[in-house]
């Protein structure tokens, strides 16, 4: 036994206890931990947002452009949005302020502009990313070739497994088919699909146990080693 003398370690132990007490039931310790968590974590996000985004990419380019304009006069370069110091950063700032238009009667619709920019851009971006990163290679990986039966890669058995994957993929796709009732051929396809899905999900669950237990191990090591000094 070798108790820690670091105040922060005991703060950590106390907070761990607050959260774990929820396993027993909701109680004032948990409520304290929960509200503290939300409060401090928001403060952390705010600080980083200010120090890493608002100041370096909004305020600084503008103030530097201001200073340059003061000493050297206005130039076209100060209106180049790509330049490290420019006046145009004010535009994203103004668009950001549109969020607050919600509180101004008659202008509430301006809120839609930043929303439209966010939704539009990221919805558009994800389409080729999904196709290129997921569909094309996964489709390719699912198709069988004569190489699937290559003795160097598992031979006949490897080929049968590859065929099973193909059957599973087609079955799963059939399961998600919305235009037909699950009857007749579609039923068989969908049933095959759901077999694969259930086996896959079970495997996924079983596989995850280790990850979650690892987390708990980490917590107990913190208490037993860092705070109490019982284990090394």
């Amino acid at each position: 036994m070798n108790l820690s003398t670091d105040i922060w370690v005991w703060v950590g132990v106390f907070l761990t206890f607050c959260i774990y007490s929820f396993l027993y039931r909701d109680n004032p310790f948990y409520k304290f931990g929960e509200h503290l968590f939300v409060g401090v974590s928001n403060a952390f996000t705010l600080s980083f947002m200010v120090h890493r985004i608002i100041i370096p990419i909004l305020v600084r380019p503008f103030t530097e452009a201001w200073r340059t304009a003061g000493s050297e006069g206005l130039s076209a370069g100060l209106f180049n949005p790509y330049a490290p110091s420019n006046f145009l950063v004010i535009i994203p700032g103004v668009i950001g302020c549109f969020y607050f238009a919600r509180f101004i009667p008659g202008l509430t619709w301006l809120v839609r502009i930043p929303i439209a920019l966010f939704m539009g851009y990221y919805v558009g971006r994800s389409v080729p990313a999904y196709l290129e990163g997921s569909v094309f290679p996964q489709m390719r990986g699912t198709m069988l070739t004569q190489a699937s039966f290559d003795p160097a890669q598992g031979g006949i058995l490897g080929g049968i497994f590859a065929l099973l994957v193909l059957v599973g993929v087609i079955g799963t796709l059939t399961y998600f088919f919305f235009s037909k009732e699950h009857k007749g051929v579609v039923k068989w396809g969908a049933q095959t699909g759901i077999v694969f899905v259930m086996v896959g999900f079970g495997a996924s669950f079983g596989f995850t146990v280790m990850a979650r237990v690892s987390l708990a191990i980490g917590r107990f090591i913190f208490i037993l080693r860092d705070a109490l000094g019982i284990v090394t």
């Binding site: 990986g141 198709m143 070739t145 193909l166």
Partner: peptide
Amino acid sequence: DAGKLLFMALLVAGTIFSLITGLDAGWLLS
């Protein structure tokens, strides 16, 4: 749904083509 049918058809057609000809139909998707 049409997309899913297309995927299924491509998978089956690609597999049959590759197994018969010995070529890799998948390179179309590379």
